[in-house]
Simulated scan of single mutants.
Amino acid sequence: MFAEIDHLVLPVESLRVARARLLQLGFQVEAEAKHPFGTSNACVFFSDGTYLEPLAVSDEAEAAAAIAAQNTFVARDRRFRLSSGGEGLSAIVLKSKDAERDHAYFLEHGIGGGPRLDFSREVIGGDGLVRTAAFRLAFADLGSEHFFGFVCERLNASALPSGLGTAHPNGVQGVSRLLTSGCTNQQSMYVLGRFFGTEPVATGSVFSFVLKNASIILRPAEPESGITADAIIFHVADLELTASLFDRAAAAYQRDGRRLIVLPAVGQGATLVFEEKEK
């Protein structure tokens, strides 16, 4: 399979705080949406088809019940929060056309990450009508307490609302690269290669997994609990426009050549990097 990033999961303590932070950085944030297992999100959609999923625990009792019922999504979110704190970047999600097939593939190659998850929830479209959207998830174990992977199949894509906001004041058009660090031994390369469906490309000691719409960069490190996600790199239309917005919003950033670096803050647990898209 030739993998394509669907979205990135960013646990947060509070969606209200996360929304305020992301708005300060010039992102357009969708309305809060509740899952049927105790979590909620407020997504940020991009024109390249990728998106961010800030995720909060909205009902502790429901989340605990979901974990007891072997809900892999909620269980892994809980593991991340216990091992890495309440905020950060916990998971990479790939697009799937057949999550049941992908689940079997993960098991066959020894990287199964837990029971598959099917769920549905109500969504409100731009026309104001309420529809039911259904999803099927299959999980991979990437050998880390701090980072996991899964695929997402939309079972009735027509139920999802159209016209979601992808025009962001900061000029972000999508995810370009994901920076990670961790062990680069043969076992790690095998696991990641099976999940991403492509073999790594080495540049010195750094490895890249080139996907259909972005790249995953793995830098060597020896964390006790496996791979960690360090930063998201976005491509923007005009870097000076992005910098000007940060200045007006009093959002702290560092300039490193032709990139802007925003370090983690409350409501934003991952480092964000902004680069001008090559013309």
Results as ranks from 00 to 15, higher is better:
72 T>R: 07
254 Q>S: 15
36 P>Q: 05
228 T>D: 01
72 T>E: 04
130 V>W: 11
247 D>E: 15
207 F>D: 00
20 A>D: 13
142 L>Q: 02
198 T>Q: 10
208 S>W: 09
62 E>K: 15
263 L>M: 12
132 T>Y: 02
104 A>M: 10
126 G>N: 07
143 G>D: 10
66 A>S: 08
28 Q>Y: 09
110 G>E: 03
257 G>H: 04
233 I>V: 15
86 G>K: 05
171 G>D: 06
40 S>H: 06
136 R>I: 02
43 C>W: 04
272 L>H: 10
12 V>K: 01
162 S>Q: 15
131 R>V: 06
181 S>E: 13
256 D>A: 14
139 F>N: 04
232 I>M: 04
72 T>H: 11
193 G>L: 03
190 Y>R: 11
257 G>I: 04
10 L>A: 01
262 V>R: 04
162 S>E: 15
2 F>V: 13
149 G>W: 05
144 S>Q: 10
229 A>R: 00
14 S>P: 00
8 L>A: 03
250 A>C: 14
158 S>D: 15
151 V>Y: 05
266 V>S: 15
200 P>D: 00
7 H>P: 00
128 G>K: 06
151 V>Q: 08
103 H>T: 10
213 N>M: 04
74 V>L: 04
123 V>H: 01
195 F>P: 03
35 H>C: 07
268 Q>R: 13
138 A>P: 07
163 G>F: 12
164 L>E: 08
179 L>C: 09
4 E>R: 14
19 R>H: 08
124 I>N: 02
113 G>M: 00
189 M>N: 11
267 G>L: 01
28 Q>R: 15
215 S>Q: 11
197 G>R: 01
79 R>S: 12
42 A>S: 15
139 F>H: 05
76 R>Q: 13
184 T>W: 00
186 Q>I: 07
115 P>Q: 01
24 Q>P: 05
248 R>V: 11
101 R>G: 14
254 Q>Y: 09
7 H>M: 06
218 L>H: 03
264 P>V: 05
34 K>G: 02
191 V>R: 12
121 R>T: 00
275 E>D: 07
116 R>C: 09
99 A>R: 09
200 P>R: 00
168 H>D: 04
81 R>N: 05
86 G>Y: 03
215 S>V: 11
172 V>C: 09
137 L>P: 02
74 V>S: 08
279 K>W: 12
105 Y>H: 13
279 K>Y: 10
158 S>F: 11
252 A>Q: 14
21 R>L: 11
179 L>W: 10
88 G>Q: 00
243 A>N: 12
158 S>N: 12
170 N>S: 09
